[in-house]
Every structure is written in structure tokens, then in C-alpha cells.
Amino acid sequence: MKIVLMALLFISFNGYAQLSSDQEIPPPAFSVEAASQTLQETVLKIWYDFIGHTPYIVVAISVLLLTGISSMLISKLIGNMTGRSKMRGSLRELTQRFARIIIWLFGILLASLIVFPGLTPAKALGGLGLASVAIGFAFKEIFENFFAGILLLWKYPFEKGDFIKCQAILGRVENISVRMTELRQPDGELVVVPNSFLFKNPVFVLTHENSRRMQIMTGVAYSEDAQAALPIIKKAVERCELIVKEKGVEVFLNGFGSSSMDIEVTWWADPTPLGERKSRSEVVGAIKQALDDAGIEIPFPYRTLTFSEPLPVRSVDNNKPSQ
């Protein structure tokens, strides 16, 4: 049997070699019908696969809908639970956002596993890790503002409605998100500040307390009794309505000015920019009125001129007729 098979193979090989030596085998001709048939079969296969996966897609969409509903309910539940406590508003909002993010990540992962049955949690997390590295390099500043916003919501002492000052920016906090903070300036303009800017620079929270210390400089002439002016100024400021009387008024001699004895006046008032302007206006008016009533001069700037040579003096007789 082996000998017969070997003989048949030998005869076939000799015949193919003879045919190849006698004529060339033409290449197969391109068929449009075959290509169309192949394309049609491919499209139909994709469509049938889609129809076959439709139940999985419907279930995945249902899972995403349930995820969104669960996210809203749990966020509302956390807000109600933390609203009864003394937790800061920004920290409560951050807790709600973290809860929503965790729920959505879990829901998206579960929906992906349903649509792609061959996908495992380990593969999904591995792909997510590689994608996060690439996205992190591409959107470095966005993620920097994101994490700065989380830290601002977590530990910074200002809330919505507070007036803050950072470098040349002064305004009332209207909204704190995980990427930016909206500030309304006293002139009404809205400033959108990246959270990384607030995190990297000193921030002055003007309304952290119910009152803030104000200060102005005034002065009396050198010819006046400066010590006698101090109680007059203090009583005048204490009679003002917009100051915080419980914290008192302080008046000190501050130094020797170019034209007057400088006097420092400090008091406490409403910390907002508008409250500061109103209080300052009232205090300045009270000090001016009190010194005027006491006959104490608030001097204009004096200038003393010194000449290197004596100036010639000429008398003029106004009764002498002009020629």
C-alpha cells in the first residue's frame, strides 16, 4: 500500500512539473461579483452580530439608567444626612461628588462587562490605567486644577458668599467646582479663577470672622497739643454707629510727618468691602468734625524753602502815584 501511494505521488509530481514547463499558469482574474459578495457577507455578519448583542446592549443601557438614578438618590441621601451635622458646605458637596463618581465608575464597568462578555475586570482596570497615564500627560493642567479643587473643597476655610483676596483679585465666592472658582468682584464683574492659582498663592479670607479691623492715618499740626487730640478722636470714633463697639477703638501717635504729628486710628467693623467703605466714611467724617469743634488744626502740607543767598527786598509805597 505504501508503494502504491508513493508511485501515485511521483506520477502527480512529474505531471505538474511537465505542465509548468510547457505553459505558464495565468493568475486568477479579479471578480467584482466576488468582491461584492464578500462585502455583503461581511456587512450581514456585522448586522447579525449586532442583532445578537441587542439584548446585552439593552441590559447595559438599563444598568446605566439605574446608575444615574442611584447616583442622584445616594447624593441626596448624603446631603440630608450631612446637612443635619455641622459639616462645612464645601466638604458636604465634595462627599456627594465622590459618591457620584464611585457609583458611575462601578456602573460603567458593569455595563462594559455586559456588552463585552470576554472582558474581565482585570483587563478593564489595566486598560483604564494605561489610558489614565496617557490622558494625564495630555491634560496635565486640567487634572492639576481638578486635584487643587478637591483640596480646596476639603480643607480651605472659605465658603460660598465669602469675600476673598488673592494677589490683585478681590471678590465674593459664588461657586467652587472641582476645576475653577467663580468670584464676583465689587464692581459686578465675574472672574473665573483656576483652582491651582488659589492653591499656589496666599488667599486672604476677608469675611472669615464677623468683623475686621480697619485703620486710617490722620494728623494734627505741630503747634497743637497732640496728646490732647487723642481722647477727642477716640470719643468721636466710639460714637459712630457702624463700628463694633465691643472690640473698642485704639488711637496712637504714630510718628513725625512732613507737616503734622501722625495719628493712627483703628476700629472693628463689617468685613465686607461695602461695610468697610461705609464705616471708613463715617469715621473720617466724625474725626474731622470733632477736631474742628475742638479748634485743633488738621494742617495742609507745609513747605520750607531755603535759598543759598539772601534774597533782595524792595519796599513798595502804595500811596505813591505811578509815573
Rank of each mutant, 00 (worst) to 15 (best):
F106N: 08
L109W: 04
L110V: 12
L110K: 05
L110D: 06
L110I: 09
A111M: 07
S112W: 01
I114L: 05
I114E: 00
V115A: 09
P117H: 08
A122D: 11
A122F: 12
K123G: 06
K123I: 14
K123N: 15
A124T: 03
A124S: 12
A124Q: 05
A124P: 03
A124I: 09
L125C: 07
G126F: 10
G126S: 12
G127C: 07
L128N: 07
G129I: 10
A131H: 00
A131S: 11
A131M: 07
S132G: 11
S132T: 13
I135A: 15
I135T: 13
G136P: 00
A138W: 08
F139A: 14
F139L: 13
K140I: 05
K140N: 04
K140E: 08
I142M: 12
I142F: 12
F143D: 03
F143M: 07
F147T: 13
G149T: 07
G149I: 11
I150G: 01
L151K: 06
W154Y: 10
K155C: 05
Y156E: 15
Y156M: 11
P157N: 07
P157V: 08
F158Q: 14
F158W: 15
E159N: 05
G161W: 04
D162Q: 01
I164V: 14
I164L: 08
K165C: 11
Q167K: 14
Q167C: 02
I169T: 11
L170Y: 03
G171R: 09
V173C: 05
N175Y: 13
I176H: 02
I176G: 01
S177E: 13
V178F: 10
V178M: 15
R179Q: 05
M180I: 03
M180A: 05
R184C: 04
Q185L: 02
D187F: 07
D187M: 01
G188R: 08
G188I: 00
V191S: 12
V192S: 06
V193L: 11
P194L: 12
N195K: 02
F197T: 08
F197I: 09
L198Q: 12
L198Y: 07
F199N: 05
P202V: 07
F204V: 10
T207V: 12
T207S: 15
E209C: 06
